[in-house]
């Protein structure tokens, strides 16, 4: 393709090809401090292309392609090309990742131990991860936590943090000096702005951590907390995994070990600051 960008996020290499220069330039700027894929060989290819040749010029619309595709994915306007690239990279992971048990969860680390946070869209997992990073936790990722079936360790996937709607201002005020992508207004998920993970998150992205706490946060409720038993954790995490079934018995073993070994709590919180305090108090009580 005309424009190409390669990057390694955590242990995973991507090559993004595009019919247009703009999304590639934006990726290059935001991922400037990231390394290239190991040995120059990407694990996944992503393509951003014009559905019909003239659509490259006339009201451009970005269609997503790659090693793995969803046939019903609708094209996005070129102004949202960065979002298209991020979505396509996530899709490769969700559909193609076979080395790790993939959990749709954010993760932060302290002293070699990780907190995994998972929940429905809007639960606040990206926001919480960004705010905890602002308080000195290492950001491991806001979208996927990768569990190694051989040893139970969690690997980082610190892609750009995708902040939506009200979370954008909350995180900007917590991290005034951080680097942000452009405001993408009116996307299918509302307003989106990407946060570039800090230098520590990038420098230590190949470093796994031992999972120590699983959280199911819920935004918009009075503060509350309850323990979650292993079988409920199992059900919730298999729902939050895109490749549990595909991994077969390896996935079963990894998931069983995770739910048996790691304590889990559901936390409700009215606003992000309250949640950060709840998470840190829980962590201190472990």
């Amino acid at each position: 393709m005309r424009h190409v960008f390669s990057v390694r996020i955590g242990t995973v290499g991507f090559r993004v090809g595009s019919d247009w220069r703009a999304p590639i330039a934006e990726l290059g700027r935001l991922y400037a401090d990231y390394p290239a894929p190991e040995d120059g060989i990407p694990d996944f290819n992503v393509r951003l292309f014009a559905a019909r040749p003239w659509r490259r010029w006339l009201r451009p619309a970005v269609t997503l392609g790659g090693d793995f595709v969803l046939p019903e994915a609708a094209p996005l306007p070129l102004a949202q090309g960065l979002l298209a690239a991020e979505m396509a990279m996530n899709l490769q992971m969700a559909l193609g990742q076979r080395r790790y048990l993939l959990l749709h969860a954010s993760a932060v680390e302290r002293d070699g131990r990780a907190v995994l946070m998972t929940g429905l869209s809007g639960a606040g997992k990206s926001t919480l991860a960004a705010l905890l990073a602002a308080r000195g936790w290492r950001l491991m990722g806001d979208e996927f936590a990768l569990v190694d079936p051989t040893n139970g360790l969690v690997h980082a996937f610190p892609r750009l943090v995708s902040l939506k709607n009200e979370a954008i201002a909350v995180v900007r005020s917590a991290l005034p000096n951080a680097c942000f992508g452009p405001l993408l207004a009116g996307t299918p998920k509302g307003d989106i702005r990407h946060l570039v993970p800090d230098a520590e998150a990038i420098a230590r992205m190949a470093e796994p951590a031992r999972p120590a706490l699983i959280l199911f946060p819920r935004f918009g409720f009075e503060p509350a907390e309850r323990g979650v038993g292993p079988s409920e954790v199992f059900v919730r995490l298999t729902q939050a995994s895109t490749n549990y079934v595909a991994l077969g018995e390896r996935g079963f073993e990894a998931m069983t070990r995770l739910v048996r070994d790691v304590p889990a709590r559901a936390i409700d919180y009215p606003h992000a600051d309250a949640a950060v305090a709840q998470v840190e108090a829980l962590w201190d009580s472990l």
């Binding site: 038993g229 199992f234 059900v235």
Partner: peptide, 18 residues
């Protein structure tokens, strides 16, 4: 066995039963 529930992984079908 987990708690009140027990996991059964069926190798032939690849399905997990709770």
């Amino acid at each position: 066995p987990l708690d009140d529930f027990t996991l059964v992984f069926h190798r032939r079908s690849g399905l997990t039963h709770l």
